[in-house]
Design a binder for these strands. Structure first.
Lengths: 202, 202
DNA sequence: GTCTATAGCCAGATAGAC
DNA sequence: GTCTATCTGGCTATAGAC
């Protein structure tokens, strides 16, 4: 027998969809209520205020994304394997949740101090191990000299930007939604090839 | 003798600052009026509505960014020169206007159909010439085989993402504002090196 | 827990004097 | 063109019945 989804859960799911599309300012409590097929006053009953509902959604979103960075970058694999796994996994994940990166970055730009709060969370990614590994691999002569911060920024940029910049990129390269989807699919492997070609010493 | 700035211009400049920080939904007409040191009702006198004022700001922002793509990608230089010039110029420009990319992409994600309107503008960038050039250079054996769309996306990603993702990246790599600024400065040359290393056949 | 009704506020927009 | 005063609608939030 299928368990009914509780009202609280229905609200959270509806709030995710609406906030991810419209942002904090653009979202309307009434729209969330409609989306959840639930009375508007119940939103306040369960979450007290729009602000608190928003924070619940934001934290859930962040905690879905952040651990993936930890999971992949803090293993004992070679950096080449890490770059491959990250690009493949992250792109696959993003294709399923294309609004997430835009949502998170938009809200962090609106309120940059919020990052400080996130850093104190235990799930906030640490890239220390990855940085040490880069420096070691440079010393061993397996990759060309590169600053670990720059490489890290490049990896994230190449994986995340295609989703945030999608509307613009579709216009520039004159692609339909379907064609763009194909381009994204190819990036699961193309991005790591592109990075590795750049840093690997042959 | 210094010419006074007209009220209309003062409003537009103030509106740029406020909209770029807060977005369409988050911005307040009163705040724009304060910022411009002008009476709130004058905003409506000159621009009729918030929506129209916003569109004026958005188009001005887009028309500042888009022509740079045309200007650099539609010359007769080698692709290596183009990638170098673009990375250097774009990053320099962004350091002066760090909110622009986030503003534009946020609003395009909010309203993706707006891109169609922009495409009909004469200033909308065409990357046809650049794509042909990539394909030719691949044929000549000077760079490894790569799809021109993917390379184009990579160039934009590496140049633009560090600005959109700044709050998050600062947290990940644990950098102060000043340290992050230094990292960005270095990218004026590091980004093109990174790309060229990846595609050039030695 | 769920509903209806409404309070209370705030923002965009306008009227009209100067 | 610029100002003050005000209207109007929409939105968050709560009171209170069931």
């Amino acid at each position: 027998m299928i368990k009914d989804i509780s009202a609280e859960e229905k609200i959270l799911n509806a709030a995710k969809r609406v906030f991810e599309n419209k942002g904090m300012e653009g979202a309307r409590m009434q729209e969330i209520a409609n989306e959840a097929k639930i009375n508007k006053s119940l939103l306040h009953y369960y979450y007290r205020s729009k602000q608190l509902l928003f924070e619940a959604v934001f934290k859930a979103a962040f905690n879905k994304l952040a651990p993936q960075i930890n999971k992949i970058f803090n293993t004992d694999e070679s950096i080449f394997e890490k770059i491959k796994n990250f690009s493949d996994n992250y792109t696959s994940f993003m294709i399923k949740h294309p609004y997430l990166p835009n949502f998170i970055l938009q809200e962090l730009n609106r309120n940059p101090d919020f990052v400080k709060e996130l850093i104190s969370t235990k799930s906030f990614p640490s890239i220390k191990k990855f940085q040490d590994q880069i420096n070691d691999t440079v010393k061993k002569g397996e990759i060309r000299p590169i600053e670990s911060e720059q490489l890290f920024i490049n990896i994230l940029a190449l994986n995340i930007f295609p989703f945030i910049g999608a509307p613009l990129l579709k216009g520039f390269i004159n692609a339909t939604d379907k064609e763009y989807k194909t381009i994204l699919e190819r990036r699961k492997t193309d991005v790591s090839d592109f990075i590795i070609q750049s840093i690997k010493l042959k």
